[in-house]
Design a protein around this nucleic acid. Structure first.
Length: 177
DNA sequence: GGAACGATCTGC
DNA sequence: CAGATCGTTCCC
């Protein structure tokens, strides 16, 4: 079943660890979420820190939708919108463990290992692009967040977020041990 | 109108 | 360890 949208309405740092071990599905490709980062509206590292713009508008929409953006002019990164509509928070998906559709992931990535162990890599592996910005993950659309009953880890690894210059001391990165 | 800067990845 | 690469944002 798809992940319960209501469970995404809390604060991003609380929701983020609950997304660990959930499945991200696009077509035949399935990956288990093993690393995430939380970004909130009052967080200087967040795209929403300076208010709503054309790019980040999806983050101000209802929870359970996909916020995709281009990183370093090259890569696509994917987030799951959290909080109430108008809030402006999301959880960045940083790493997946491939579960199904591995051949397709290999083909998209052009290599056989290191398929989804990074935010840009996992989007390429699953075939997620800017065209998927705004997609509803909790409905019956082509991209979905699925709960297969695997619980999140009891004690996730917690640390600072990666690749940012502001908010570096906030321990909002969560990983499956 | 322009410049600076990335929530990154890869190959050297 | 540095280059790739370009849209977004903000300032003049």
């Amino acid at each position: 079943m798809t992940f319960d949208r209501g469970a995404l309405q809390g604060e991003a740092p609380d929701v983020a660890p609950m997304l660990l071990n959930k499945l991200l599905v696009h077509g035949a490709c399935v990956g288990r979420i093993v690393e995430v980062e939380a970004y909130t509206a009052d967080d200087p590292a967040s795209h929403t820190y300076r208010g709503e713009t054309l790019r980040n508008s999806v983050m101000f929409g209802p929870p359970g939708h996909l916020y995709c953006y281009r990183s370093y002019g090259i890569h696509t990164c994917a987030n799951i919108v959290t909080g109430r509509p108008g809030h402006g928070a999301a959880v960045l998906i940083r790493a997946l463990v491939p579960v199904a559709g591995v051949d397709e992931m290999r083909r998209r990535r052009g290599r056989s290992t290191g398929l989804a162990d990074g935010p840009g890599k996992l989007c390429q592996a699953l075939g997620l692009t800017l065209a998927h910005n705004g997609a509803d993950l909790c409905g019956s659309g082509p991209v979905s967040l699925v709960d297969d009953g695997t619980p999140p880890p009891r004690s996730p690894l917690i640390g600072p977020r990666i690749g940012i210059t502001k908010g570096v001391d906030t321990p909002w990165r969560f990983r499956v041990p």
